[in-house]
């Protein structure tokens, strides 16, 4: 069977909650088959709403949704068989054991993977007979993902799978996702962790206030900043005037300057050209340099550059 090239598609999606503003305001999205697509954005940007509409759990106010070439209105049952879903928060019954949960979820699907097999995939073999209430946050989350995997889905939705997890649990979950993707399946995940998106996602869409404000591979988005390096400087001697900011952005190799909490952040490429030029400029202007740091640009910088706000604001 040939996979449709587009695993999930939505057009002119609008979601308006009663009495409220639009949570999603005209969203167009294509998720390609076989890719890992990340939806990024601050809390309340509309990530979860978007995902739940794609999952067929919410009815959009307007717009068109197509999943695996099918529509929720006509093919709900067939679609459910091929989707794996992990919600942002799900509590299984406290006294359900890990393996029982998997058997239960497996029983909903006409075909799927062996529960024992999935158990191994998420490294929960040792917790096989433990009650749900005895699991750690990371284990619960891995079980939630396992419940999504047990139906052997073609398309996997993960809503903030690693929020609130410790770094090690997060790494384990990333492995699970990478493994799933390696089998040629499609993943849609939401996150507000930039490293996660950069690590896992082939493409990301950045959502803010219900609108898609950027779309592309993490590398492309960062490149679009005009530079892959960021120089952060803190200057002595009081407030920095607009003319100074203007002068700094004229330095060779510097593509953008913006104000951050502790001073200025300059997007630069290549670094070995921009940095000496910056130092020369500061010396020439008689400015005291209190702190200087350089780092690679991240999706966080992309978001800040696009909205003027931090991701976790």
């Amino acid at each position: 069977m040939t996979e449709p090239p587009v695993a999930a598609r939505c057009r002119a999606l609008v979601m308006r909650y009663p009495g409220g503003v639009a949570a999603i305001d005209g969203l167009d999205l294509d998720v390609h088959a076989g890719e890992c697509f990340g939806l990024l954005g601050p809390n309340g940007a509309g990530k979860t709403t978007t995902v739940e509409i794609l999952e067929g759990l919410l009815e959009p106010t307007a717009g068109d949704v197509e999943i695996l070439g099918m529509r929720w209105s006509t093919d709900e049952r067939r679609l459910r068989e091929r989707l794996g879903v992990s919600l942002q928060e799900t509590h299984l019954p406290e006294r359900l054991t890990v393996i029982e949960a998997l058997i239960l979820f497996r029983s909903f699907f006409t075909k799927g993977r062996e529960p024992e097999d999935v158990l191994r995939a998420v490294s929960l073999e040792e917790k096989r007979a433990s009650y749900y209430e005895k699991l750690s946050g990371g284990q619960k989350q891995r079980l939630a993902v396992a419940c999504a995997l047990v139906g052997d889905p073609d398309l996997l939705f993960l809503d903030e799978p690693t929020t609130g997890l410790d770094p090690q649990s997060r790494l384990q979950l990333w492995d699970v996702v990478t493994e799933f993707k390696r089998a040629g399946r499609t993943v849609v995940l939401t996150t507000h962790y930039m490293e996660e998106a950069e690590r896992l996602c082939d493409r990301v869409g950045i959502i803010d206030r219900g609108k898609l404000i950027a779309l592309g591979s993490p590398r492309e988005l960062i490149a679009a900043l005009g530079g892959r390096e960021v120089i952060e400087v803190t200057l002595g001697g009081g407030a920095i005037g607009e003319d100074r900011v203007g002068a700094l952005s004229g330095i060779r190799g510097v593509s953008a300057v913006r104000r951050v909490a502790e001073g200025l952040a300059l997007t630069a490429d290549p670094l070995h050209v921009a940095l000496p030029a910056l130092l020369d400029h500061l010396r020439g202007a008689g400015l005291q340099l209190e702190r200087l740091a350089t780092r690679h640009a991240t999706l966080e910088d992309v978001f800040v550059a696009l909205t003027g706000r931090g991701l976790r604001d």
Binding site: E55, G56, L57, R77, R80, E81, L83, V85, L87, E89, T90, H91, L92, P93, F105, F108, F109, T110, C147, G151
Partner: peptide, 16 residues
Amino acid sequence: DLRTKKLVKRLVATPM
């Protein structure tokens, strides 16, 4: 209880 735990929603997301 199942509803407040969002388990109802999770189950609806399966072919059950």
